[in-house]
């Protein structure tokens, strides 16, 4: 892959991240999101967020597998887009659905586990987004990498949030579990790839040559 190729790769990545936003915005303003547009916005923004989170996790293994370190350039923007959709998801809930009625939000959700899993995911992603700048990276040294490994925790918390928010029962494997199950399978696979056994290239953005795959 050459620089020219990575340019188009990045163009497609940015477009892929922005099109859902445009689609949502247009759908909302032109009334094309069905009978309950607020729920549609909440659910759709959440699904995009967990999709992008999965895509962010996919970057490193993909770069290793394809031996294309330039792909790593997509990781930071994907992570930031993930956070942007998480933020949108929260703003829709708080601003549109609950009309900034914080006391009502608190009484409605304070004892509901799904909201805390979601909130923890958001906080981790916020911390990662803020510290994603080069300035922070230099400042934090070895701690930067350690902090950013929390994205795996965020992914697991996000999965719990998703499983708890759909109707069904994980223990009896019944209910509306198909969608979160797909994300769970993908994310767990990507977590598995982080185990030392599978990690021949701890830093593929530097090492490009491999013959032991």
């Amino acid at each position: 892959m050459r620089v020219r190729h990575i340019f188009w790769f990045m163009v497609i990545m940015h477009a892929g991240c922005l099109i859902p936003l445009a689609w949502l915005g247009a759908g909302y303003f032109f009334g094309r999101l069905g009978a309950d547009p607020i729920s549609a916005l909440e659910q759709f923004s959440g699904r995009i967020a967990i999709s992008l989170l999965t895509a962010t996790l996919l970057v490193h293994p993909l770069a290793s597998l394809l031996k294309q370190p330039l792909i790593m350039k997509a990781r930071r923007p994907l992570g930031l887009y993930t956070f942007a959709y998480v933020l949108l998801h929260v703003l829709i809930l708080v601003g549109l659905d609950y009309r900034l009625d914080i006391p009502l939000l608190v009484t409605s959700y304070v004892d509901k586990p799904f909201i805390w899993f979601g909130a923890a995911t958001s906080l981790i992603l916020a911390a990662l987004a803020i510290t994603s700048f080069a300035w922070w990276r230099q400042r934090m040294g070895v701690w930067w990498g350690r902090l950013h490994r929390l994205i795996y925790l965020a992914a697991l918390l996000d999965l719990a949030h998703f499983f708890l928010v759909v109707k069904g029962n994980l223990l009896s494997l019944s209910g509306n579990l198909a969608r979160p199950s797909i994300y769970a399978a993908l994310i767990l696979l990507l977590l598995l790839l982080r185990l030392p056994v599978f990690r021949h290239h701890p830093c593929p953005d530097i090492s490009t040559h491999t013959d032991d795959t």
Binding site: L96, D97, T107, S108, Y109, K112, F114, L164
Partner: peptide, 19 residues
């Protein structure tokens, strides 16, 4: 009586934006 995973204290009538 809340659903264990979400509250039942309010609702949105379809077609109306306010809870």
């Amino acid at each position: 009586v809340d659903h264990p995973r979400w509250s039942q204290n309010t609702e949105r009538i379809i077609g109306q934006p306010v809870r």
